[in-house]
Design a protein around this nucleic acid. Structure first.
Lengths: 162, 162
DNA sequence: ATAGATGCAAATATTTTGCCGCCAG
DNA sequence: CTGGCGGCAAAATATTTGCATCTAT
């Protein structure tokens, strides 16, 4: 019943990296979605990102592979991936401005726990969270497609400094 | 252990209306925060709002009391209230664009359950959610100040139409 | 061949900042 | 009185749209 303690990670760093790189590309092919050069670049980056990506970071990395790749393409590709439920959109409690962060959807939902002091973000899986979702699904008679829990607080370090 | 079923509510409509109007104003006075004419207007609106407010709605309503009240004042007042933990910021899964919604913080956190089809939002309290927070607090050694859970899916009506 | 994607420019939406005059306490 | 606050304008940031062109299939 204890939450998988997950790992301590520095600002935005992630661990749930694709066990199977190319998963996004394979998934889109399976669904008959057109794969352009630009999309392949973006999918690869998202698939293997070691941190939570925002549009700016995604664009910057994509331009290393293709300097002409446009910011609009990033937005449109993210929209498409959101529509297909392949990536989740987070705001991480606006730790750093009002931008959004994106991560590939994994096999199991997780909670984001952020320190509002230092910005560290941990990803935590929890049986309790799974049960909560099932309870909501039953009690509200809703078919859940996205469940987002973001928790903010202060870690021991930041507590002692205040 | 069942979630408090809460009530079915139309787009953004809320029920957790202040049991004690003027609570926000009293709270700020208690903390020695200066109360201006503009702040009183905004606090009263937030205190008694029957729906989730975004900046646009808040401004529009405030201007009925004072047409010169500026949008920037709305942003600054909301910032202040957020800092003091008196209001929570939501995005309701971006049901309607990338704006934020604000609600007075009540005595007990609740979950927002939104239908991605028709936009209805329900507020649900749950013992499981409270336990989840305590678990996170313990396992992650964090002192939680904000916990946000937003769940999206499709209600029976919207399921049948697709 | 052609439906659908991209690039570019511009529009729109959202939030923040600088500065000066005003007002609550 | 005076430090904090509000109004106004402008800037900064974030996202979306229109349209001509290109390309994956």
């Amino acid at each position: 019943m204890a939450a998988t303690p997950a790992r301590r990670i520095s600002s935005g760093e992630r661990i749930n990296i694709s066990a199977e790189p190319g998963r996004l590309e394979a998934e889109l092919t399976r669904r008959g979605i057109r794969l352009t050069r630009q999309r392949r670049i973006l999918l690869r980056i998202i698939d293997t990102a070691p941190e939570h990506l925002n549009v700016e970071l995604l664009l910057r990395q994509a331009r290393r592979a293709d300097p002409r790749l446009n910011r609009v393409t990033v937005y449109r590709t993210l929209d498409m991936l959101k529509r297909f439920g392949l990536v989740d959109e987070l705001d991480l409690l606006h730790l750093r401005g009002h931008q959004h962060y994106y991560e590939m959807r994994g096999p199991r939902d997780h909670i984001h726990v952020a320190c509002l002091g230092c910005g560290k973000v941990r990803e935590v899986e929890s049986e309790l969270f799974d049960r909560l979702k099932r309870q909501i699904e039953r009690d509200c008679d809703i078919q859940i497609t996205v469940a987002r829990t973001e928790i903010g607080g202060y870690c021991p370090n930041c507590r002692s400094r205040s």
